[in-house]
């Protein structure tokens, strides 16, 4: 036998094994790394959602700041203060509190960007897969073009264009405005992945006979797409979405670090790192190190979850 004749039997055993042994919850419980990642992610969500109550200080209310508390090292180092667990920055803001608020912003931007690209990508993907023809060609070529542009470049361009357009208008280019620009910029560069995956999944589902059965009784196309096809293409979208969330958070941090993201008045994790790195060489390493660690931990946890989901659902992604 030249080639392994195993694939036939492999499929058979695979089917048997899946029937007996595939269970998302089980593979989750069995994997302590994933459980830890999930707990860490949940803690971030919790901390971000309830920052107002959890944070020991309100770092962005100037009236509560005192320059006397500025540049305190973390509590366990000499000169530290236990009411400022991770130390303070040059204006006396509590690092731990700024991280909580910063994580909130990072997560809001990340989630919104992912939702934006999912809605756009899935919508274009399922319709182009279902209808085909010239519409499909246009959408998929647009996706190709979009993929040639790095997301940071897109974000820089969008940011520049938006500022230029709105400069002369009443709309203020403040922190809130920056958040919308970021969500759009990060989201717009991720949609092709969803569109591609959903389109190919749609092509597979469309050819299955349950869709034919619905067509025979005259169910309208939009309803077939929405009720029949779409739910069967969501597995890979969930996986990409999770991995993309980590990516979106990093992109946001990168942009903020480069100074085109969220301004220091309402800093995200990326902004905190940028602001803090000026103090790195003057000895106040904690101002930038702790936000950086927080970012790494969050992204790592989300990424681990995404990888696990991909393996557990096992769609043939890349």
């Amino acid at each position: 036998m030249t080639a392994g004749p195993l694939s036939g039997s492999g499929r058979l055993m695979g089917a048997l094994y899946r029937g007996a042994d595939s269970d998302l919850a089980y593979s989750f419980r069995r994997n302590p790394v994933v459980v830890t990642a999930a707990i860490v992610t949940l803690l971030y969500f919790f901390g971000a959602a309830f920052a107002d109550w959890i944070a020991p200080h309100t770092p962005f209310d100037p009236s509560t700041l005192s320059l006397g508390d500025a540049e305190k090292p973390p509590a366990w180092i000499e000169g530290g203060d236990w009411s400022y667990l991770l130390g303070t920055d040059n204006q006396g803001r509590d690092i731990f509190s700024t991280i909580l608020y910063g994580s909130r912003l990072s997560l809001i931007v990340g989630f919104s960007a992912v939702i934006f690209s999912v809605v756009l990508g899935v919508g274009l993907g399922v319709t182009s897969g279902y209808f085909g023809g010239w519409y499909e060609s246009i959408v998929m070529r647009a996706a190709d073009v979009q993929l040639t542009l790095p997301s940071i470049l897109v974000a820089l361009m969008v940011d520049g264009v938006a500022r230029a357009i709105f400069a002369g208008t009443d709309i203020k280019t403040d922190a809130t405005f920056a958040i919308y620009v970021l969500i759009f910029a990060i989201g717009i560069s991720a949609w092709p992945q969803y569109a591609r995956v959903v389109r190919s999944a749609t092509l597979v589902e469309k050819s299955k006979d349950y869709v034919a059965a619905a067509r025979v009784i005259g169910i309208p196309s939009w309803r077939i797409m929405l009720r029949h096809v779409l739910p069967n293409t969501m597995g890979p979208v969930l996986v990409i979405g999770t991995i993309d969330l980590a990516l979106a958070i990093i992109t946001e941090a990168t942009l903020s670090f480069l100074g085109v993201g969220i301004p220091p008045t309402q800093p995200s994790l990326g902004t905190l790192i940028r602001v803090g790195q000026e103090f790195l060489f003057s000895g106040q390493w904690w101002i930038t190190l702790f936000p950086a660690l927080a970012l790494v931990l969050l992204v790592l946890a989300v990424n681990l979850l995404g990888d696990w989901l991909r393996d557990a659902l096992n769609p043939k992604l890349r």
């Binding site: 036998m1 030249t2 080639a3 392994g4 004749p5 195993l6 694939s7 036939g8």
Partner: peptide
């Protein structure tokens, strides 16, 4: 033993032939 003394034929010829 397989091949020399026991020959094997599977359902899908493509799994037994290297493309």
């Amino acid at each position: 033993i397989r091949g020399a003394r026991i020959g094997v034929i599977f359902q899908d010829p493509l799994t037994s032939l290297n493309p």
